[in-house]
């Protein structure tokens, strides 16, 4: 074979949309992406139907009735799947050496992180919004068949909650993207994300009561949950929009940190 087939090219230059196109191709060209998002969807819908089929409002008392949250309860488990998918999006580049080819193509570096965040957010949101919607509709149908309180999408806060479920799941994944980019090793990053999102809240009871009650609403997934709650227990929980702001705050801090380190470190 000869090199004579090489063609001359012009007009090729790096732009952010093009880097996003690159990440879009990378994201969807792995089977694990589809599998993991499918798992997140199945868990969300499956646990939502289970929880609405088993929930006992009378035992909980009327103040705690939140049929919307009951139908979306599966996201607390499904977030594991999206968080791991987010971690893999960045750590797999380091684990396989693909990062060197990526940064050779985009030596400015930061567009790669912005593009990963954007592509993950878009790809994950589509799937998880569908999952939340399906879980909500199935769950409410089950509740109404059981003659229990149920909600419709047009009830105040219900649609926000369904969108919130996608925000909750996608946000967990984006936290994974950022932590993966910071730690670069799959096992370490998954451990860190699970520790921060899922295990830290369960360590709170070790703290003195007043501190615990102050800190608890600000744990990332608790804050995100506040955005989903329609009929919350009240008390120390954040308002929906405050919850969203806190959750977004975590994300911004982690992504900016990841950006600084991506720019600074040797690849």
């Amino acid at each position: 074979m000869s090199t004579a087939t090489l063609t001359q090219m012009s007009g090729s230059r790096v732009t952010l949309p093009r880097v996003m196109h690159m990440e879009w191709i990378k994201f969807w060209s792995l089977r694990s992406t589809i599998y993991t998002l499918a798992v997140a969807l199945l868990v969300t819908v499956g646990i939502g139907t289970l929880s609405t089929a088993l929930v006992d409002f009378k035992a909980n008392g009327p103040a705690a009735n939140d049929p919307t949250w009951d139908s979306l309860y599966g996201i607390t488990i499904a977030a594991l799947a999206t968080a791991v998918l987010g971690v893999l999006m960045t750590t797999s580049e380091y684990g396989t050496g693909t990062i060197r080819a990526t940064l050779a193509a985009v030596p400015a570096r930061l567009p790669v992180l912005w593009a990963k965040v954007a592509v993950f957010a878009a790809g994950s949101f589509i799937f998880t919004f569908a999952a939340g919607l399906a879980a909500f509709l199935a769950g409410q149908a089950i509740l109404s068949a059981r003659d229990l309180d149920s909600a419709t999408l047009f009830d105040p806060g219900a649609f926000r909650a369904v969108v919130g479920a996608a925000v909750y799941l996608t946000g967990a994944g984006l936290i994974g993207v950022a932590i993966g980019s910071l730690l670069r090793h799959t096992a370490g990053a998954i451990t860190a994300v699970i520790g921060a999102l899922f295990l830290a809240p369960s360590l709170l009871p070790l703290l003195p009561g007043s501190i615990r009650d102050t800190v608890n609403p600000y744990m990332p997934l608790n804050a995100a949950q506040a955005f989903i709650t329609v009929n919350g227990p009240g008390g120390g929980d954040l308002s929906p929009w405050a919850g969203l702001a806190v959750y977004a705050g975590y994300l911004v801090v982690l992504v900016v940190w990841a950006a600084v380190m991506l720019k600074r470190r040797d690849a």
Binding site: S12, V14, R18, M22, K26, V106
Partner: peptide, 9 residues
Amino acid sequence: RALAASNGI
């Protein structure tokens, strides 16, 4: 294909 896309190739 992905690497090419980043540079508009």
